[in-house]
Write a protein that binds this DNA or RNA. Structure first.
Lengths: 231, 231
DNA sequence: GTTTTGTGCACTGTATGCAGAATGTCCGCA
DNA sequence: TGCGGACATTCTGCATACAGTGCACAAAAC
């Protein structure tokens, strides 16, 4: 590890990571942008993607766009049909149920691991997020609630300190992001989801891995039910 | 659905599927080829990939090669360093342990599902593979054993009838393929692995999901141990 | 009227060319 | 002799140009 000032950073100095200016390659930016466009519904499921048109819309040539589409295909957000290009993937109810089942298994694993090996500070962060979630629920702010909700699930997986697990979870969460949004329609469904989150917070605070896994499982099963009814 | 001979194929005629000539896009072929090159060790971990050189070696221009590298990066087989191109990913022991833990969770899920919902014919196929495995073990044919071994694990996941699960499993199995090969060094280790497979076959034949999941878990834990010692 | 065949268009797949970034090297200077 | 800086080389990243494929529409034949 080399340091900027020819020695290791002095104790007490600000961590250098805060200063690096993030330089993402163009195709990386396109990946991010397209992912958002898919999850936010700007690209409808089943829609064919015209490379020239979309490239112009993004102000980018076809090359980085095509590379980005390959990446998104790997994440299952678009499908590549030979000689016909990319199509925004549309999820059947079975697709959703299948992905949710895997997502559930991954988060249960994450929950167990998190209770075993997370630092107290790490757990405290998740609980702080949970506090925010509660506030947003009380205020009835749907969108902030939704985002914090996602953040909590991601944070728990992060606590598990398993990059492979984290990556797989990210992929599935991105797939479900758009769909999940439908899941919180009626107030009583929302209340149920919030109650499950309370249980999750309690279990995590106690580092009770089995209890946490159980709640997470229930949370996903009921989440799928909520989607099924609204789909 | 249009038919070739202006009507539906006559009963008794050969199924037309046997005649379609498979046309994979060039970049698809490159993906497959590169994946093999990585798992078979022709590209060493940590090695930088020179696009022009590798392109010439494969007889392909840089464009499809670059697209293929994006796909492989999504599968975690190579890493993309900005402005420095692709390097073959090298796995630390923790990386391996992390991936194995996820692989274990996925296969346990698959095992439970397979016992619940697989057809008798599907289970019979896996048991037939197991029979071949036993023969290869008795004969001491390492490479065929290894391939059938992989095929059995894949087949069980296929029985679970969950494409998302199957895809995730494929990715992780590809990552571990090269490493696993080390895991069967001494004869006693091999014998232990074979014994676990016997248990798996028995549990699957009985459709005992919990037992199957338990053996699969043990199989992976011990598999990781076998790797740890040899690594 | 129905089916079939030909032709044109639009779009993807691949190759190549060009600019910029990073690294290694060589020379000058202390 | 050691260090710093400018330069050259190499390779990636992106854009563009070209070729080939599939599809749609139209015209002709049965």
């Amino acid at each position: 590890m080399t340091s900027i000032a020819s020695t290791e950073p002095q104790a007490g100095a600000a961590p250098m990571e805060d200063f690096v200016i993030p330089r993402q390659s163009l195709h990386g930016q396109v990946v991010t942008r397209l992912r958002d466009m898919v999850t936010e519904g700007h690209l409808a499921p089943g829609q064919r993607i015209n490379e020239v048109a979309l490239g112009q819309a993004l102000g980018v040539s076809r090359t980085p766009l095509r590379e980005a589409l390959k990446t998104l295909a790997g994440e299952g957000l678009v499908e590549l049909v030979p000689t016909r290009g990319a199509v925004v993937r549309s999820f059947s109810l079975k697709d959703i149920a299948d992905s949710m089942e895997v997502l559930k298994a991954l988060e249960q694993l994450a929950g167990r691991r998190a209770c075993l090996m997370a630092s107290d500070a790490g757990i405290a962060e998740v609980l702080a997020l949970h506090e925010q979630l509660r506030e947003r629920y009380a205020a009835g702010d749907r969108l902030p609630y939704f985002k914090i909700n996602q953040a909590i699930h991601s944070a728990i997986v992060t606590l598990a300190d398993n990059p492979t697990l984290l990556r797989m979870h990210e992929i599935l969460q991105a797939q479900m992001k758009r769909i999940r949004f439908i899941g919180h329609e009626g107030m009583e469904k929302w209340a149920a989801a919030m109650a499950e989150h309370e249980e999750m917070a309690t279990a995590l605070a106690r580092r009770d891995g089995e209890a946490l896994a159980e709640v997470i499982g229930r949370h996903h099963d009921l989440g799928l039910e909520r989607i099924r009814e609204a789909y």
